[in-house]
Design a binder for these strands. Sequence first.
DNA 1: CGCTAACCGAGACGGTACGTCCCGTCTTTAC
DNA 2: GTAAAGACGGGACGTACCGTCTCGGTTAGCG
Lengths: 189, 189, 189, 189
Amino acid sequence: MARQIAMDPRVTRTRQVVLTAVLEELADVGHADFTIESVASRCGVGKSTIYRHWDGKTELIVDAMHELNTQPVPTPDGPPRERIRQLLHHLGQALTDGSLAPAIPALVEAAERDRGVRVLLNDYTVERRRTLVEALTLGIEAGQIDTTIDPELAAQALSGAIVYARLMTSTPLTETAIDQLIDTVLGPV
Amino acid sequence: MARQIAMDPRVTRTRQVVLTAVLEELADVGHADFTIESVASRCGVGKSTIYRHWDGKTELIVDAMHELNTQPVPTPDGPPRERIRQLLHHLGQALTDGSLAPAIPALVEAAERDRGVRVLLNDYTVERRRTLVEALTLGIEAGQIDTTIDPELAAQALSGAIVYARLMTSTPLTETAIDQLIDTVLGPV
Amino acid sequence: MARQIAMDPRVTRTRQVVLTAVLEELADVGHADFTIESVASRCGVGKSTIYRHWDGKTELIVDAMHELNTQPVPTPDGPPRERIRQLLHHLGQALTDGSLAPAIPALVEAAERDRGVRVLLNDYTVERRRTLVEALTLGIEAGQIDTTIDPELAAQALSGAIVYARLMTSTPLTETAIDQLIDTVLGPV
Amino acid sequence: MARQIAMDPRVTRTRQVVLTAVLEELADVGHADFTIESVASRCGVGKSTIYRHWDGKTELIVDAMHELNTQPVPTPDGPPRERIRQLLHHLGQALTDGSLAPAIPALVEAAERDRGVRVLLNDYTVERRRTLVEALTLGIEAGQIDTTIDPELAAQALSGAIVYARLMTSTPLTETAIDQLIDTVLGPV
DNA sequence: CGCTAACCGAGACGGTACGTCCCGTCTTTAC
DNA sequence: GTAAAGACGGGACGTACCGTCTCGGTTAGCG
């Protein structure tokens, strides 16, 4: 990141400890009880220091997630169908077990109100889906998937089912269910 | 609703004006700036009156939405494939244009923290999907849909794609896109 | 006070406990370390309750003093010369021992910046001096004081010496010194 | 001043620009809104530079005033009675028009809390009065003032009346009033 | 004439109090 | 006798300065 040119080491350190504390706090108490003051005291930083670097709660969370997301999703390999499976399992896991999983609903809500979060969430989503679309395209080219399938819409249907189960119901999809989902949407192998 | 047996007319009136004001307020200022005190003053009701009838912000919004949702989704008719189309168009519309559309992300977030909301949201979702599953089953029986399709999972994929586009990206699905989605998931007619 | 017509008993109580705490706090920590938050916690009142009734630190202190000053200075009696002596001794004591004595310098400073305090302080001062002028006039009429003495200016000189010693030097006037002062300014008996 | 032996020219310059800025700032915004940070930015000096030379707000102001006061009061001449008049007029003017006049109440308040300021103010006051006492003594010796007058107490009464009018009321003494005051306290010529 | 030490500005830091807002509770008053 | 009005204790907000500190980048004057 170009930002790092000649940054005051104190700033670097502050950014790091605060963002870490933000994620811990989110995981601990959830978005509703998330408080800038408790983040500050959790990481032994002055409240004013946080406000010196971020504009408010939203920016803080968005930034914390950005930091996290720099660890790229490892590109799965193997035959296309298997890649697709890996990607969707990974998505399911990220939504339910990942370190920012508990913050996803909060993000969705924040996106509704805050343009910055909306863009962030959209970018994140689209990026994830792009990989899936590529795998689907490969699968179609390899003759493993019916050519009547639109890769873009199929990706939406597959990702969508997982998101839907996570956000709108009390029962996220199991890995088995994901496998069956793939067969239903893409047709059996 | 069983609640309606022998309800004090004043209570009925209070419930009505408050819930109306809740929806107006939500539409006006959004969820973030939504305040019980402003609802109270908007409809000329004492703050304590609101607290007498509801437990807090979430319950208030949930109740307001419930009231709205008592207008039942009109059961679509026509051939199964067309029913499915109607149901999904309706879902897309409910998520983007409906009067409670702006509150959906808030609900998702509330569900993460509040068991009551979680149950409510789950029930609502499952109920909607049940209708869709029925239509899918009819379609399969009618030979309009491939038998390799699992109706339950297909319903999740179809509903999911729409929810996913609405909540996770900046571009909800258009009606045309929904039609193409159906063809992709269920196979062409 | 006309204000008391139909005042909510909670307000009355709040006013009372807060103003008491203000004077205690002033006496304890002085003006510099005087904090609205510590007043609040000292008397177990919410900070917002204080801000509901007063605009800030200055108004709070001014009001507290007003409350105090409703106890009128007892009119001294006896021969005029003795009355004068009593009044001046009382002034000296009020400036050094009285419950609002430690707050006087703060008041002087506040008066410089705040019109309300200025008026309050001026009124308080003028009222006190009026009594002294009356006693001086009686003394002149009774032939106990030289007729070349201007009562108004003599009152300023006498009060002034006491104020001056209190505010501008480290050594307030003793009662003995006050007696000698009287003899010097008014001439010996 | 002994301080000036071999002082780094940068230090000299800093002292000068800061103290000038202090007086400007005091005149501009008053004592209440006086801020070290605004003094620093007003004269383009780092905040740390100020703290390197002074301990805090009070020391800064006291020092700025000291600098001003190095212009000695010109010793008045002429007959004793006239000298007294000149001294008191000068005092009145210093308290109301002088460049540090607006800071006097702040000093009085600071003296209440800060031993250093208390000593400074006391010394300043006593020094001023000493000159007046000398003039009074001369006047008594010259037979222009009644021998029953205690010079020390008379000086307190005269200075006190002026200070009192300035600090405790809204109407400082005019020069005419001062002349009458002298006649009242010292007796007519 | 170059080196080193002091002084400089800039500004990040942990704090503390400010004054505001809204929460959810509870009391009073008026209809 | 019920409900509006709204006072209450609480607590997070975001702001403003405090006084301390670390950091390069100049001076200054000594050697």
